[in-house]
Lab assay of single mutants.
Amino acid sequence: NQASVVANQLIPINTALTLVAMRSEVVTPVGIPAEDIPRLVSMQVNRAVPLGTTLMPDMVKGYA
């Protein structure tokens, strides 16, 4: 099972992602792969992401 990126805190809309804001977890459905965490740092989310939410490619500006 592949680990996905999960919000480690509430991430407000247009907030730049940080290492502290993300964690890796095996979840269903699978979201952005955990190995992409370094690439996600400083990218912005295009919606509010609640704690525990799996990050999907369409939630991160410039990711997809």
Rank of each mutant, 00 (worst) to 15 (best):
N1Y: 15
N1D: 15
N1C: 13
Q2D: 10
A3M: 12
A3R: 09
A3H: 08
S4T: 04
S4G: 03
S4M: 02
S4E: 02
S4C: 04
V5L: 01
V5F: 02
V5Y: 00
V5G: 03
V5R: 01
V6S: 01
V6R: 02
V6P: 01
V6A: 01
A7I: 06
A7Q: 02
A7E: 01
N8F: 01
N8L: 04
Q9I: 12
Q9L: 13
Q9C: 12
Q9M: 14
Q9V: 14
L10A: 14
L10P: 14
L10F: 15
L10T: 13
L10H: 15
L10S: 14
P12T: 08
I13Y: 13
I13F: 10
I13K: 13
N14K: 04
T15W: 11
T15D: 07
T15N: 08
T15Q: 10
T15M: 10
A16T: 11
A16H: 13
L17T: 00
L17K: 00
L17V: 01
T18K: 09
T18C: 06
T18H: 06
T18G: 05
L19W: 12
V20I: 13
V20T: 15
V20N: 15
A21G: 07
A21L: 14
A21T: 08
M22E: 04
M22I: 08
R23H: 05
R23T: 07
R23W: 05
R23A: 07
S24T: 11
S24W: 09
S24N: 05
E25Q: 09
E25I: 06
E25Y: 06
E25M: 10
V26M: 11
V26R: 06
V26Y: 13
V27W: 04
V27T: 13
V27A: 05
V27F: 01
V27D: 01
V27N: 03
V27K: 06
V27L: 03
T28D: 15
T28G: 05
T28R: 06
T28A: 13
T28F: 12
P29W: 02
P29Y: 00
P29C: 05
P29H: 04
P29S: 03
V30W: 09
G31M: 01
G31W: 00
G31C: 04
G31H: 01
G31L: 02
G31N: 03
I32K: 02
I32A: 01
I32L: 04
I32Q: 02
P33T: 07
P33E: 03
P33R: 09
P33S: 09
A34V: 07
A34N: 04
A34S: 10
A34T: 05
E35P: 06
D36G: 03
D36L: 11
D36I: 07
D36W: 10
D36R: 08
D36Q: 13
I37K: 02
I37T: 05
I37P: 01
I37E: 02
I37V: 04
I37M: 12
I37L: 11
I37N: 02
I37A: 05
I37D: 03
I37R: 06
P38V: 09
P38F: 12
P38W: 12
P38G: 10
R39P: 02
R39F: 12
R39I: 14
R39D: 06
R39V: 11
L40W: 01
L40Y: 03
L40V: 03
L40H: 00
V41T: 04
V41C: 06
V41D: 04
V41F: 00
S42M: 11
S42E: 08
M43T: 04
M43N: 04
Q44D: 05
Q44F: 14
Q44A: 09
Q44V: 13
Q44C: 11
Q44Y: 15
V45Q: 01
V45A: 04
V45I: 05
V45E: 04
V45G: 04
V45M: 02
V45S: 03
N46V: 12
N46C: 09
N46W: 07
N46Y: 07
N46E: 07
R47G: 05
R47K: 10
R47F: 06
A48V: 14
A48C: 13
V49Y: 03
V49E: 04
V49F: 02
V49K: 01
V49W: 03
V49I: 15
V49S: 02
P50W: 06
P50N: 08
P50V: 07
P50I: 07
P50S: 11
P50G: 08
L51N: 12
L51A: 15
L51R: 15
G52R: 00
G52H: 08
T53E: 11
T53R: 09
T53A: 13
T53I: 08
T53P: 01
T53W: 13
T54W: 00
T54P: 05
T54V: 10
L55I: 14
L55M: 07
L55P: 02
L55H: 01
L55S: 02
M56R: 08
M56L: 09
P57M: 07
P57N: 04
P57W: 12
D58R: 08
D58L: 08
M59Q: 04
M59H: 06
M59N: 04
V60Y: 00
V60C: 05
V60L: 07
V60D: 04
V60H: 04
V60G: 02
K61W: 11
K61N: 11
G62M: 08
G62L: 07
G62W: 07
G62H: 08
G62P: 00
Y63E: 05
Y63H: 05
Y63L: 05
Y63T: 04
Y63G: 05
Y63V: 05
Y63P: 05
A64K: 15
A64C: 15
A64R: 14
